[in-house]
């Protein structure tokens, strides 16, 4: 029933590379936006009890919303393609990033902050050279979790014409019963898995080289 996989791949590998790069691009763009927003939000609330628990609870509830539901709600407003995809990926990335920013900042020993202030550092300087560098390994872990989450959600976003490998997964479904149905969905799914594993591996390196030297083990 299915056409042979090697012929399929030989004919479409360029297509597949393009889709994989698109998938990577949309995930990277969303993570970049979510990191900026998430860390800022974390900075605003981490040392204030009520706003902190309000933000973390809201983010915890938001992340349970099924991604197809969110994409469907966004698409009449934002149209199809990149816009609803990026907005929803940022939405789902915020919880792990905000939570880890808060945890990371709270874990910085108070006496270090105090000595920095005692040495005459301004609050901004203390934040930039003491608190954020010390919290960074925890924040990176949050971004890594968000990356795994978004690679999978981006595949569903193909349903609202989002970019990436989801296109092949859905192409298999829409050509159900044809020779290449299995090939389309299988290669799409496997490439998503490989991409997720490669990104996860990349984060080991990112975490290592973006962490301040004194903290590296």
């Amino acid at each position: 029933m299915s056409g042979s996989l090697d012929v399929f791949l030989a004919r479409r590998w360029e297509d597949l590379v393009t889709l994989t790069l698109q998938h990577l691009a949309v995930v990277a763009l969303s993570l970049a936006i979510a990191t900026v927003l998430g860390v800022l939000l974390g900075l605003l609330v981490w040392d204030r009890n009520v706003p902190r628990s309000a933000v973390l609870t809201a983010a915890g509830i938001a992340i349970t919303i099924p991604s197809l539901a969110l994409l469907a709600l966004l698409s009449p407003v934002l149209g199809l393609g990149w816009a609803p995809t990026v907005v929803s990926l940022v939405f789902y990335s915020l919880l792990p990033i905000v939570r880890n920013t808060v945890v990371g900042l709270r874990e910085v020993p108070a006496h270090l902050v105090e000595s920095a202030r005692g040495m005459g550092m301004t609050p901004v300087r203390t934040l930039l050279s003491i608190q954020l560098p010390l919290a960074w390994p925890v924040i990176v872990t949050g971004i890594r979790v968000a990356a795994q989450l978004t690679v999978g959600i981006a595949a569903i976003a193909a349903y609202v014409a989002g970019p990436g490998l989801g296109l092949y997964i859905f192409k298999g479904l829409s050509s159900l019963g044809s020779v290449n149905a299995l090939n389309f969905t299988l290669t799409g799914t496997i490439c998503v898995v490989l991409l997720a594993l490669v990104i996860d591996g990349a984060f080991v390196l990112i975490a290592r080289y973006s962490t301040s030297r004194g903290l590296r083990v």
């Binding site: 795994q148 690679v151 999978g152 595949a155 569903i156 989801g166 997964i169 859905f170 298999g172 479904l173 159900l176 149905a181 299995l182 969905t185 299988l186 799409g188 799914t189 998503v192 898995v193 997720a196 594993l197 996860d200």
Partner: peptide, 22 residues
């Protein structure tokens, strides 16, 4: 478990529908 976590749900659902039935 790690590979499972990296697998997109939509891929699993559609693959099974193709090789088996809807």
């Amino acid at each position: 478990g790690n590979i499972g976590q990296a697998t997109p749900a939509v891929g699993v659902v559609i693959l099974l529908a193709i090789v088996w039935q809807t």
